[in-house]
């Protein structure tokens, strides 16, 4: 299990003072054994410096194929020679995940899902009568979704226009992903609303939203084929990285978001930007799928715990 503990001594790189919260360093158990905390913090700081790199990076493995990014003059070091990432994780390590069910009292189902510093709330209303009669579907339920970001969710405060293209797209992605797992044919002429609200954005909001929506739907007792879980993976410094944070996400490398139905072993969501050779893509996607499975295990635990609580309260 990934037990991480924030290293509070560490203040973040100079260029990201605004995003102090985004780049909390994490110090791991194995490091603790070897180094005392101060030394580790010092090392973390060194790792965060820009590496002026002309020519190939001496530390990274030679590129496995002819594919490669154009070598830029100033290159950010995302994976240190020791194999640690900016926030101290291993390349195949996820951020700490945490979930809580039933956080919005008045919704039919709700959940909070955190992946590191990314935090989203999902609320589900329904199944209920279709509000807009013209949208009613006679043989299945209507699923709707809205994604919104809080003004304070990003490092620099944003005054967002509601319903910009990015949030419309993510709303659509979440809706399609959830529609694939909800047994809509059991609830004809009804409507299910999924609302996701991002409280903190630190990369991987898409995945976090889907995970939160799954939990909220389960909490609302909506029949589903399977739970959907999602996780992202990327490829930086010739290393596949699991669960990108904001800095890694904005590095411009490929970002693969995968959503799976873990029990049926089916992929319901797959998105990637930037280019990757096929063999590496397979690796990265495999890594993201593994991440999804880890999330699925955790979500199942949370749901089971929640069910036990409900049972207990009923006095069974």
């Amino acid at each position: 299990m990934m037990q991480v503990r924030p290293n509070l001594d560490y203040e973040g790189p100079k260029s990201h003072q605004h995003h102090r919260a985004f780049v909390f360093g994490f110090e791991y158990g194995f490091l603790k054994e070897k180094l005392d905390q101060k030394e580790a913090a010092k090392r973390a700081n060194e790792q965060l410096g820009f590496v002026f790199d002309i020519g190939p990076n001496p530390w990274s493995k030679p590129a496995t194929s002819s594919f490669g990014c154009k070598p830029s003059l100033v290159k950010m070091e995302y994976v240190s020679p020791e194999g640690l990432r900016l926030d101290g994780r291993r390349p195949m390590e996820m951020r700490q995940i945490r979930a809580e069910i039933g956080t919005v009292a008045r919704a039919d189902g709700s959940a909070v899902f955190e992946m590191g510093n990314t935090k989203v709330i999902a609320a589900v209303y329904g199944p209920r009568e279709v509000q807009n009669r013209s949208q009613q579907i006679s043989d299945q339920a209507l699923v709707r979704c809205e994604y919104s970001m809080a003004n304070f969710s990003t490092g620099d405060r944003m005054r967002k226009p509601k319903g910009d293209r990015r949030s419309t797209e993510i709303s659509l992605v979440i809706r399609q992903t959830m529609e694939a797992c909800i047994l809509t044919h059991l609830m004809p002429r009804s409507q299910i609303d999924i609302f996701v609200q991002v409280l903190q954005a630190d990369g991987g909001t898409r995945s976090a939203c889907i995970n939160a929506a799954t939990l909220a739907l389960a909490d609302a007792g909506i029949p589903m084929r399977d739970i959907v879980t999602s996780c992202s993976a990327g490829y930086l410094n010739s290393t596949p990285l699991l669960d990108l944070n904001y800095i890694e996400d904005s590095a411009g490398g490929p970002d693969v978001t995968v959503g799976i139905l873990p029990k049926l072993d089916k992929v319901t969501l797959l998105q990637m930007d930037a280019k990757l050779p096929l063999d590496i893509f397979e690796n990265v996607m495999g890594l993201a799928t593994e991440g999804c499975k880890a999330v699925a295990n955790y979500i199942r635990e949370v749901l089971l715990e929640n069910t036990k609580q409900l049972e207990y309260r009923r006095g069974l």
Binding site: R106, S110, Y125, Q131, A150, K162, F195, V196, Q197
Partner: peptide, 13 residues
Amino acid sequence: DCSPTAAPMFEGR
């Protein structure tokens, strides 16, 4: 800001 999580009527605008 009223989040739509609070009530479905806060959806959109």
